[in-house]
């Protein structure tokens, strides 16, 4: 028994092999986009408050709606709305990518890199496009 205790205390001091975690791997686009998908999902979760405020303000009357319009038209409001637009489109394209993967397609190295790149380039392009259309619908920036 004493022998066993001696060997375990000696073993505790020795460096034990540990299982590798995220920080041991070289960052890759696919793993970055994986965590960004989760982050945009969580952002949209709290962004639902913005949607709720918008609809409740519209249902409450002109004054409440004016307050919402004042906020969303302010610099911070526009940054938040731009972020919401991007998060929504990025999560949407990332979701489509996951649906493609669910059919067991697109797992070759070149394919998954291409899909991942398309998600980030596509989401930024679409966000800018949606905002250009939005400003055109309002008759130019104000």
């Amino acid at each position: 028994m004493a022998e066993l205790e001696a060997s375990t205390t000696a073993g505790a001091r020795r460096a034990r092999p540990i299982s590798p975690h995220l920080q041991i791997y070289r960052p890759m686009l696919t793993m970055m986009m994986s965590i960004v998908h989760r982050i945009t999902g969580a952002a949209l979760y709290f962004g639902f408050l913005l949607l709720a405020w918008w609809l409740i303000a519209a249902a409450s009357g002109p004054n409440a709606y004016a307050n919402f319009e004042w906020f969303i038209g302010s610099f911070i409001g526009r940054v938040v709305l731009f972020g919401y637009t991007w998060a929504l489109l990025h999560h949407m394209l990332g979701g489509i990518r996951h649906l493609i993967w669910d059919t067991l397609h697109g797992f070759e190295p070149a394919e998954r890199e291409w899909l991942t790149l398309a998600t980030i380039v596509g989401s930024i392009t679409l966000t800018v496009l949606v905002w250009i259309v939005g400003y055109l619908a309002m008759g130019g920036p104000r």
């Binding site: 519209a58 009357g61 002109p62 709606y65 004016a66 637009t85 929504l88 489109l89 949407m92 949606v130 259309v133 939005g134 619908a137 309002m138 008759g139 104000r142």
Partner: peptide, 16 residues
């Protein structure tokens, strides 16, 4: 989501 974006754009700059 596409429907939401279209609706939101249609409402931009409109009165209450």
């Amino acid at each position: 989501s596409i429907a939401l974006i279209v609706i939101a754009i249609a409402l931009l700059g409109r009165s209450h």
